[in-house]
Design a protein around this nucleic acid. Sequence first.
DNA 1: GTTTGTGAAACGATTCACAGCT
DNA 2: AGCTGTGAATCGTTTCACAAAC
Lengths: 206, 206
Amino acid sequence: MRRIADSTVRRLSLYLSALEAFESQGISTVSSEALATRGGTTSAQVRKDLSFFGSFGKRGLGYSVLALATRLRDILGLRRKYRLAFVGAGKMAGALVNYRGFQQRGFHIEAIYDVDPKKIGQAWNGLTVRNAKNLVAELRANPVDIGVIVTPADSAQDVADRLVQAGVPAILNFAPAQISTPDAVNVKHVNLTLELETLSYALRNR
Amino acid sequence: MRRIADSTVRRLSLYLSALEAFESQGISTVSSEALATRGGTTSAQVRKDLSFFGSFGKRGLGYSVLALATRLRDILGLRRKYRLAFVGAGKMAGALVNYRGFQQRGFHIEAIYDVDPKKIGQAWNGLTVRNAKNLVAELRANPVDIGVIVTPADSAQDVADRLVQAGVPAILNFAPAQISTPDAVNVKHVNLTLELETLSYALRNR
DNA sequence: GTTTGTGAAACGATTCACAGCT
DNA sequence: AGCTGTGAATCGTTTCACAAAC
């Protein structure tokens, strides 16, 4: 199958949450137009995005909310559970660990690591903060799907290297630092500074 | 001037942090190639991005780290301070308020709002959590540049409406909800669920 | 010799517009 | 009649490749 653009995948995720909202409102059928409004795009874009994966609608009618949501979960790979390991037991990790959306969507936090002796051993939401020096060995023995970097910027590359060594196939990086990894490793960045700076650019003449 | 693509602005922000890293290493001149490596792109892309704003390099030599950083700060509008108001005094707000990068880059948190009587009045990093019911009046009297939504998803639209009413020109939304605002208001989303779901898509066949 | 700045070419994503189902 | 699915057209972004500057 043709490689799917990242922008398309992101919209599929938005369509899925729109469908879940429709579902909770008891709406059973939607048009591409309705999905577009909720997902911040156009009806043609919705239809094109879906068409990469098959044809899920009924002409003249629209899409079944339930059936399309199920198909999107399939497409996005959300039928299975994902195991996460956090590195960095700071405030940001605390906020993320507490976020109910993770568990709900099948993302399970399996371990939290830190280097700070004061943090190691602390209980975190049923988990014990582990010593980061054992990260590679422990994650090799007990693999996870996604490593979440929530350390300061200057440790981010080191942590990424260790996650790669441990065989972690995907990384979600919250540290404001670019990290380099082998091509086979999937990396997503959440960079708050960058988001604020794009807003700054937008506001520069206000 | 031609409208600049969002992707370009985001890269400029990455180039700026790369330049700051070079600066702290005492490097005074960089090539587009060096910037590209740090910013995760190509040298041609770097030169093209910069060319929209002028010509800042010396042929055969490269760019002055200091001079280019200054120009990028100008371009991104980072010479001025920005005033932020947070809405939602939860764990995520706690993590963000504590994040030193905000102050360093000139983003000053001026107020934190919540609806929870238990939180109103609490001291947060030198600020007092304010009653969200006074948000519109107070932000009209004391305007901010950016409203940061850190509430649960189901309050996000309501908060956005109030920020718009208060005349806030830009919103950074951490709630996992699409929000609709007038076109004149700039909105950026940081949606953790969406990031995880794109990783899920990437991992789906592992 | 090296590296920038930039038109032109290539590529990729979005929008259009309509035939084909229901 | 209404809405999907999709090739074709359009639009925008990235890459190429090289002349110009140092």
